Computed example of a mutant assay.
Amino acid sequence: MFVMEGSGELSGSGLGITPVTTADHQGPDLPGYLAYLLLGFKFIATLITVLMSGWILFTIKSTRSLHKPHNIFVAHLMVADIISAVLSTAQTSIMMIGFATGVGDFINCRVFKFLLLTVMVIFSTYLMISVDQIIAIAFPFKHRRLMKCRVIGGFIASVWVLSALLSIHVFFNDGYTKTPQYGTCLSEGSTFVNTLITFILPIFIASFVAIILNAYLSVKAYQVRKQIQMETRLSGRSKELKDLKKKQATIKEHLKPMITLLVVVFSSTVFGLLFPLLYVPARLLETATTYEDVMKYVIGPNIGYMVTLLHPFVYGLYYKQVRDPMMKILKRLLCRDKFASAVVAPKP
Rank of each mutant, 00 (worst) to 15 (best):
G6F: 02
G8E: 08
S11I: 00
G14P: 05
T21V: 13
H25R: 12
L39A: 07
G40A: 04
F58W: 11
S65K: 11
K68I: 01
H70V: 14
H70P: 07
F73V: 12
V86A: 12
G102V: 02
V103Y: 03
F112N: 07
L117C: 06
T118F: 11
T118Y: 13
Y126W: 14
L127Y: 01
S130I: 00
A138M: 10
K142Y: 04
R144S: 09
F155E: 02
I156F: 00
A157T: 15
W160V: 13
S163T: 06
A164L: 08
G175S: 05
Y176F: 15
E188Y: 13
E188S: 15
P202R: 01
S207N: 13
V209A: 11
A215S: 06
Q223V: 12
Q229G: 11
E240K: 12
E240L: 14
K242F: 13
L244T: 02
K245T: 15
A249Y: 06
T250E: 07
I251D: 06
L255F: 05
L255I: 01
K256F: 05
K256E: 05
M258S: 15
L262H: 12
V263M: 13
V264T: 01
F266V: 12
F275M: 09
F275C: 12
V280P: 03
E286P: 06
T289N: 10
D293R: 02
V294T: 10
G304L: 07
G304D: 14
G304P: 14
Y305R: 02
Y305C: 07
M306G: 15
H311W: 09
V314G: 01
D324M: 14
M327T: 06
K338D: 07
F339E: 13
A340S: 11
A340D: 13
V343K: 10
P346R: 02
